[in-house]
Design a binder for these strands. Structure first.
Length: 422
RNA sequence: GGAGGGAUGGCCGAGCGGUCUAAGGCGGCUGUCUUGAAAACAGCUGUGGGGUUACACCCACCGGGGGUUCGAAUCCCUCUCCCUCCGCCA
């Protein structure tokens, strides 16, 4: 959520941001109108409440029964009026909240203008697209041939787009998770193990509800939702907190599965493990002071890049344009790794500075050392990295002409001597 | 799942229809005193909203939500969480 005062004071700025994101701008006018209505209602109802408070206090001390009754009758009418106004106010507030919940964050000045993902900008490419002297196989061939990915069993027990990892395949994914958590720990992040289910308040705080209701899995009887990303529980860690300034920044990393109920288009990404309703991810997350978030963003990008580099991947860094930018983000870099088997760049990470957008919703603040008012923190999130695609990249990049896979050096400590999958 | 007990300001803890404008204590901040510190004494102390150039001032908040009442921390309903015991269980 953005600051309502910003819309009040600089509506043209917000209108421009919406236009840059290829969105309707009419909500700005509606917000302004509702806000005015809201404030006029507040003034009216609070004047009445002040009156009732004063008179009620007097009633308590009155001795004359007639005068007392007269005041009670008068206040009963005032009370009825207050109830009616409170109800009006509730409705106006609800409409305002809904509008505000659907206004995205303002893009950073460095985010390039663009209509859609075709106008994202490649910042840099690291490594070369390898020239192989044999025909590389896609992972959906490699995996079953090596007996480490079983698509039939996934479909059998759960359904379309689910798979089972087996033996060295399962172990390889576990190795990747452990490697990433250990690397991020060295980079200064504190590892967190969080619940994989959260209550709706947490999803609201993280900005997933109400907007992404359709993409979430939910318990039918209780207020428990499967996390769509570790970003959700990590944001929730400090909702309604006021942290000490000198305890910032806080760097967190967490492994969680991610559950997403998105509608998959039938013909797209159907092969392999690239896209599914369940996937694993190691996430990085930072809470920091507003003035520190640009530097924190650079750090997080560098940390994700290092993860790719240590795995020996050829990767490129893209900057998302305004038309492709996520709802809460001001600036986002995606990292894509080259997968020679399927012959495409795979998005394995997305790093965003959401400034105070999530913090405002989550009510996540810090107390300055000078003891002044609590201020909203800034938050940043980034994948480090997304699992199935990283697994794809390992299999496809490290495959040998004979169909075996040589596991990268950095992962071997977790592979139990299995340096080669064959 | 069953029975009982709880939830009050940064923390402890009183209050159980009307000066609650939430006692008292601890902690914190400021000041007086002091060469300095401690002690003592005095004052201050949260969040959100409205309002103001800025103040003043006003409203709301005693776990969440709803209700009764002229008036609710206090009474009623409901939910959540914590504690004790029983049952079940990896």
């Amino acid at each position: 959520m953005i600051d309502l005062n910003l819309i009040r004071e600089k509506p043209e700025l917000v209108r421009q941001a919406l236009a840059d994101r290829q969105m309707e701008t009419s909500s700005v006018e509606q917000v302004l109108q509702l806000d005015e209505q809201r404030r006029s209602l507040i003034q009216e109802v609070e004047t009445l409440k002040a009156e009732r408070n004063v008179v009620s206090k007097e009633i308590g001390q009155m001795r004359d029964p007639a005068a007392r009754q007269e005041n009670i009758d008068a206040m009963r009418l005032v009370g009825d009026r207050i109830s009616a106004l409170d109800e009006d106010l509730r409705q106006v507030q609800a409409r305002l909240d809904e509008l505000m919940a659907n206004i995205p964050n303002l893009p950073d000045a460095r985010t390039p203008l663009g209509v859609d993902e075709n106008e994202n900008v490649v910042i840099k490419t690291v490594g070369e697209i390898p020239e192989l002297d044999f025909q590389p196989k896609p992972h959906w061939e490699l995996g079953p041939e090596l007996g480490i990915i079983d698509f039939e069993q996934g479909v059998k027990i759960t359904g379309s787009r689910f798979y089972v990892l087996s033996g060295a395949g399962a172990r390889l994914q576990r190795a990747l998770i452990a490697f990433m958590l250990d690397l991020h720990t060295r980079q200064g992040y504190t590892e967190k193990y969080t619940p994989f289910m959260v209550k709706s308040d947490t999803l609201v705080a993280a900005g997933q509800l109400p907007k992404f209701y359709d993409n979430l899995y939910k318990d039918h009887e209780e207020d428990l939702w499967m996390v769509p990303t570790a970003e959700v529980p990590l944001t929730g860690l400090h909702m309604d907190d006021i942290l000490d300034e000198d305890s910032l920044p806080r760097y967190y990393t967490a492994y969680t599965p991610c559950f997403r109920r998105e509608k998959m288009s039938a013909g797209r990404d159907v092969r392999g493990i690239k896209r599914g309703h369940q996937f694993d991810k190691v996430e990085m997350y930072i809470f920091c002071k507003p003035e520190d978030s640009p530097a924190a963003f650079e750090k997080m990008v560098a940390d994700a890049e290092q993860t790719c580099a240590e795995l020996g991947f050829t990767y490129r860094v893209l900057q998302l344009c305004t038309g492709d930018l996520g709802f809460g983000s001001t600036i986002t870099y995606d990292i894509e790794v080259w997968a020679p088997g399927c012959g495409e760049w795979l998005e394995v990470s997305s790093i965003s500075n959401v400034t105070d957008f999530q913090a405002r919703r989550a009510n996540a603040k810090y107390r300055p050392v000078d003891g002044g008012r609590a201020r909203l923190m800034h938050t940043l999130n980034g994948s480090g990295l997304g699992m199935p695609r990283t697994l794809i990249a390992v299999l496809e990049n490290y495959q040998q002409p004979d169909g075996s896979v040589v596991v990268p050096e950095v992962l071997q400590p977790w592979m139990g001597g299995t340096g080669v999958i064959s």
